[in-house]
């Protein structure tokens, strides 16, 4: 029997353009996003539910919701 892996949606941050303002941190309902070393935002794929709130909030629009 073939095992079908269900695709899950996750937030992905374009680190090179992230301004590390943390707007995404504030809106994340599952606290999956952290600002790493004051340099960029990063979503924990283990926690992220792919709701897209961070992508909508990001003032620089550098967060995309991608299927892993």
């Amino acid at each position: 029997m073939e095992i079908v892996k269900k695709k899950r949606r996750k937030a992905k941050v374009d680190r090179s353009l992230c301004v590390a303002c943390g707007c995404c941190v504030k809106v994340c309902p599952v606290k999956a996003i952290t600002i790493v070393y004051g340099a960029y935002a990063q979503a924990d794929p283990g926690k992220c539910v792919g709701c897209g709130k961070c992508a909508k909030e990001c003032p620089a629009s550098v967060i995309r919701i991608v299927e892993d």
Binding site: C28, K31, T34, I35, V36, Y37, Q42, D44
Partner: peptide, 15 residues
């Protein structure tokens, strides 16, 4: 490429 999330408590900021 990916920061060690579980070990970056000192460097990470939560809301």
């Amino acid at each position: 490429e990916e920061a060690p999330l579980r070990h970056s408590a000192a460097g990470s900021e939560k809301g």
